[in-house]
């Protein structure tokens, strides 16, 4: 019988973004900033990658932050502390490159802030001057403000509609910093693909090394299927094992967008069916929880 992964804590950070602390001691021990896990909620579910936002070795937990956009993430966001996730595997991917670059700009767009946050923490610990730019469509979608503030030397909050912080896009703030003549040694941008592509175009003329974290479709996450292949400087890379972080100036974003659309119709159908009647999925997800309460085999010995 599968060993389950109990949810120890869960809370919404914004309307559709939820934070989970999940018991996964082996992953907690090994995880470094920039790495991810692959999660499957129940026996009929798909495998999806989620970046590890934080970990606690002593408690043996990892933190994941999930935006409910498709069926699987919305189902996940209906789980609570006390429920369990059927499969969690990781830590996968290469960790972020962390060193004393000097001045580092960390840019998080929407839920990408959750992915950028652990790297910002690591950059700060490595002695960098960390400038963080967080963007969201509006105030209600801004997440982790306090956490990010605590780890940043400078924090700029941007909303598309001006409902909070400054009115504008993250790229406008980045451009402004460059125009002010600020020395920027390294940029990390994580968010929607159009945002990452736009950041790459802002830094390209100034030859500022820029890293993005890519989110192609994955299955196994261990380099076995090649579904997550991305093209970086004409070279084929597997985001799950070679990435997920790559040189933004080399990435073929157009191809990434096209490949990510591959199952759009099916994803839409699946989401609609779930929204219309989530009973079966919820029951199955909670059934997993029941199995955990009454395990058929004893706990792991190691």
């Amino acid at each position: 019988m599968p060993a389950m992964f109990p949810i120890k804590e869960s809370r919404f950070l914004s309307g559709d973004v939820k934070l989970f602390r999940v018991e996964a001691p082996r992953i907690a021990r090994k995880r470094q900033a920039g790495q991810f896990v692959i999660v499957r909620i129940h026996e009929h579910g798909e495998r999806i990658p989620l970046t590890i936002a934080d970990s606690d070795v002593e408690q043996g937990t990892i933190t994941i932050i999930v935006q409910g956009v498709g069926k699987t993430t919305r189902l996940l966001n209906q789980l609570e502390a006390g429920d369990s996730i059927l499969d969690v595997v990781g830590p996968l991917g290469e960790p972020s490159e962390i060193k004393a670059f000097g001045t580092v700009v960390v840019i998080g767009g929407g839920v990408g802030t959750a992915i950028a946050y652990p790297t910002a923490v690591a950059m700060k610990q490595a002695g960098n001057h960390v400038i963080t730019i967080v963007g969201a469509r509006n105030q209600s979608l801004l997440i982790l403000e306090e956490e990010v503030r605590a780890t940043s030397d400078e924090l700029y909050l941007m909303t598309d509609d001006g409902s909070y912080g400054e009115h504008g896009f993250v790229t406008q703030k980045l451009q402004a910093l460059i125009d002010q003549g600020r020395t920027i040694d390294h940029v990390l941008a994580i968010g929607p693909i159009p945002m990452m592509r736009a950041v790459a175009e802002v830094t390209r003329p100034h030859q500022i090394p820029t890293i993005v974290s890519l989110n192609p479709i994955m299955v196994d996450g261990t380099g076995m299927c090649g579904g997550c292949r991305v093209y970086v400087g004409k070279e084929c890379k597997f985001a799950c094992v070679d990435g997920p972080e790559f040189d933004a100036h080399q990435v073929d974003f157009t191809n990434l967008i096209q490949r990510n659309k591959m199952y759009r119709d099916r994803e839409q159908e699946s989401l609609e069916a779930f929204e219309a009647d989530p009973t079966d999925d919820l029951e199955e997800a909670h059934h997993c929880h029941m199995e955990q309460k009454f395990p058929e085999v004893g706990p792991r010995t190691v």
Partner: peptide, 13 residues
């Protein structure tokens, strides 16, 4: 025999 799924040797351990 003990079977453990979701363990990537080289990554998890």
């Amino acid at each position: 025999i003990d079977f453990q799924t979701n363990v990537v040797i080289g990554k998890t351990v």
